[in-house]
Nucleic acid binder design. Structure first.
Length: 423
RNA sequence: GUGAUUGUAGCUCAGCUGGUUAGAGCGCCUGACUGUGACUCAGGAGGUCGCCGGUUCGAACCCGGUCAGUCACCCCA
């Protein structure tokens, strides 16, 4: 007895009608990004492992324990992409796009991370994100943030907040790190085990610890914002002023740090309460050193990544989606002869863009009406021996429950009547 | 990687302190109704109780392992 094969752990099948909702969400994301002048980029789902080691950072959890890595038949180390930014930079460098000026890209697709699944966390999640290259100006930060915020707003999501912070550049962050360490080291014995471990590796992480034992130490810790160098502080205050000018509400949250090594200056998250332990639906920020660290020119960049599954979770938490409108026509044939004739009509209607559902088994009318219900059809066209004899066909409005008889050969009129019904 | 919890029909779930033929509701199929879908009635199909092993005269139920779901930690979208 062979055991049944299931979808791999942490993955899932997207079936109708959920797949339809997903497709239309993605379509709205495309329209939005294009409206900001961003062009879609599609990169391979696997890349040289080294790209992520260098791009994301060797010390990060992603690289240390979450990558799906394999050796291909040519002995190359390959990794299923755990994020999009490094591949996008790689592609832009490979095609020398940075030598022709600023670049704006958006992407939609799956990423892969080997993690234990839980609410809002999968091994093959999907992300929508944008990347803006070539502008160090704070306007670029705000452009990217407002794009993300518009996506949230346009879906009527009220339970979402924008959190903003600056983690400085290489210079002032290092200074802050020293100050933070000087403050935390004496308190080390009072910290949670996790935070004691974080202390030397990445002390900024202690700040967003969830362990109540760290609360006291974190509360009085020095803030990054007080240690920003002048250019970074200036950048941050301009970002804030521009957000205010655009009426985009935000909270400054000095505790948000991002998980990837490449961030500089502005970092932000959009959070929601309907995501369980994962509160972040969208995370992003500036990464001015990434392009250079991957061997490219000195190109500043800002971007974000948004979790599509998490976004859908927020949408469904906001209330049940309205039932989709009834659409299309159920072609109901009684007998093989009628079915053959209806096939022709179905084809003609489909050529005009009408959705036509058709049962192909020899079922009774009643059963075929049930199928029409299940398909959400707006109208039915019925053809049996009577109609074949008289050359007429019954067009039924499935909502009004009213019938009209029309000439079977007058496709124009049939189409017109169906259109009037909204089919 | 760690911990908790769950796994019986397509779906939601019953199944007494282990006892022999595993149930319900909904859904599905057929018929009552040569050809009109939300009702009614009568039938029917569908399960090796996640999988493997152990204990026992006997296991859906107890024990071990394993796979998967869910939730949390770590971390992140």
């Amino acid at each position: 007895m062979p055991s049944p094969i299931l979808a791999p752990r942490g993955t899932y099948d997207l079936l109708p009608p959920a797949s339809t909702l997903r497709a239309s969400l993605e379509a709205r994301m495309r329209v939005l990004a294009q409206g900001y002048g961003y062009g879609e980029i599609r990169t391979p789902i696997f890349e040289a492992t080294e790209l992520f080691e260098r791009g994301v950072g060797e010390g990060t959890d992603i690289v240390e324990k979450e990558m799906y890595t394999f050796v291909d038949k040519g002995e190359r180390r390959m990794t299923l992409r755990p994020e999009f930014t490094a591949p996008v930079v790689r592609a832009a460098l490979e095609h020398k796009l940075f030598s022709v000026g600023p670049q704006r890209f958006f992407y939609i697709g799956p990423i892969f991370r080997y993690e234990r699944p839980q609410k809002g966390r999968y091994r093959q999640p999907h992300q929508f994100g944008v990347e803006c290259y070539g502008y160090a100006e704070p306007e670029a930060d705000v452009e990217v943030i407002s794009l993300a915020w518009q996506l949230v707003r346009s879906h009527g999501i009220s339970d979402a907040r924008l959190q903003l912070n600056s983690i400085g550049d290489a210079v002032c962050r290092e200074r802050y790190r020293e100050a933070l360490l000087a403050y935390l080291r004496p308190l080390a014995p009072t910290l949670s085990e996790d935070s004691q471990r974080r202390l030397e590796r990445n002390p900024l992480r202690v700040l967003d610890s969830k362990d109540p034992r760290d609360g006291e130490a974190v509360k009085n810790a020095p803030h990054m914002l007080e240690h920003l160098c002048d250019p970074c502080a200036q950048h941050f205050s301009t970002v804030r002023a521009l957000l205010d000018a655009l009426s985009i509400p935000y909270d400054v949250n000095p505790r948000i740090v991002r998980g990837l090594d490449y961030y500089t200056r502005t970092v932000f998250e959009i959070v929601s309460n309907s995501l369980g332990a994962q509160s972040t639906v969208c995370g992003g920020g500036r990464y001015d050193n990434l392009v250079a660290s991957l061997g490219g020119p000195d190109v500043p960049a800002v971007g974000f990544a948004l979790g599509i599954e998490r976004f859908e979770m927020i949408l469904s938490a906001g209330g049940a989606e309205p039932a989709p409108p009834r659409r299309g026509v159920q072609a109901i044939a009684l007998g093989a002869q009628a079915r053959a004739r209806l096939l022709l009509l179905a084809q003609q209607l489909r050529e005009r863009g009408t959705t036509v559902f058709m049962d192909l088994a020899d079922r009774k009318v009643a059963a075929q009406f049930k199928l029409a219900e299940r398909n959400g059809a707006r109208a039915g066209v019925i053809l049996g021996s009577d109609e074949l004899a008289t050359g007429e066909l019954v067009v039924r409005d499935l909502v009004e429950r009213s019938d009209v008889r029309l000439s079977l050969d007058d496709t124009e009129q049939i189409a017109a009547v169906l259109e009037r019904m909204g089919a």
